[in-house]
């Protein structure tokens, strides 16, 4: 019973992390129908920034996290304004080729600058180890992840449902053409969302170094996870990707625990079953038109 709770706990932490990593992708996909396979590169950027600040410059971990966000977002804006925006009207093939190209370049560049081995971020002592909660071992770091990601999710939901920007964004995702007809500056909304999504990915990257591992191949290794979150969750709301992330996180952790030999196959099997059952994802409408 307690292992079940531990698995659930770890799975939720993992899933929430995936959500923070991937939700930017879901929104930008819904908004512009743009397939950005380089999303993981922004996460990697955030992770490495955080690592350098903490390990080399001696920043406290919690001070480095916001900077991971800001840097990834800044890189996002830069790339969006200079490169991405030329590709919104192109075919999906072009978008795929382009973003794979960017991913490869980022992988090689990070490999060149930082070396190819996995890096670790020095965590404050308060986050290490676990404590006992009614017999269930609770990892401090994972608890922090659940708290941070949970707060972020609530904040995102509030921004989307309560603010003016949120309503514009929802209108734009719903139907970009109608939205621009209503006088909403869709490209601007998109640029902002894109940057924000990249920032979240960067933050997620920094947080995930401890759990998912951070090396130059991060964007390639987790590409499939992001794709699963977005296809299974759909892109019409953030609830879909959120639930999909949790499902993926719990499924993956449980699979690796109960059938360690078949670990990675569990999520693929879940994914395939879901797709046979509902080709357009579990939640909401098709992810791309």
């Amino acid at each position: 019973m307690t292992t079940l709770f531990t698995i659930l706990f770890d799975g939720v932490a993992y899933g929430m992390l995936l959500f923070v990593l991937a939700c930017g992708l879901a929104v930008t996909l819904g908004l512009m129908n743009f397939v950005n396979l380089a999303h993981g590169a922004f996460a990697m950027a955030g992770g490495y920034i955080c690592a350098v600040l903490v390990n080399n410059s001696g920043w406290p971990f919690f001070a480095a996290l916001p900077l991971a966000f800001v840097t990834a977002a800044a890189i996002g804006v830069l790339l969006e304004r200079t490169l991405y925006r030329h590709l919104y009207t192109r075919s999906h093939l072009d978008q795929v080729l382009f973003t794979i190209g960017l991913t490869f370049m980022s992988v090689a560049a990070v490999d060149y600058i930082m070396g190819s081995s996995r890096i670790f971020i020095k965590l404050p002592a308060a986050l290490e180890g676990q404590f006992d909660f009614f017999g269930v071992g609770i990892g401090r770091y994972r608890l922090m992840i659940i708290v941070i990601c949970g707060l972020l999710t609530v904040a995102l939901q509030l921004i989307l449902s309560k603010t003016r920007f949120g309503s514009r964004l929802r209108a734009a995702v719903d139907d970009p053409r109608v939205a621009s007809g209503l006088g909403i500056n869709v490209p601007q909304v998109f640029a902002f969302t894109f940057a924000f999504g990249c920032g979240l990915a960067g933050l997620g990257g920094a947080l995930s170094a401890e759990i998912l591992g951070l090396d130059p191949y991060f964007p390639l290794k987790f590409m499939i996870y992001f794709l699963i979150v977005v296809t299974v969750g759909g892109s019409s709301s953030i609830t879909g990707p959120f639930l999909a992330s949790l499902l993926l996180g719990i499924g993956d952790v449980a699979g690796k625990y109960y059938v360690p030999k078949m670990g990675p196959f569990v999520i693929y099997t879940i994914m395939i079953v879901i797709l046979i059952w509902r080709p357009n994802g579990l939640f909401g409408r098709a992810a791309a038109r």
Binding site: V35, T231, P279
Partner: peptide
């Protein structure tokens, strides 16, 4: 063949990884 481009991307990538 089911679903949209994005689903295809995921499925094809997923099968190779599997």
């Amino acid at each position: 063949i089911r679903g949209v481009d994005l689903t295809r991307l995921m499925v094809t990538l997923g099968i190779a990884l599997l």
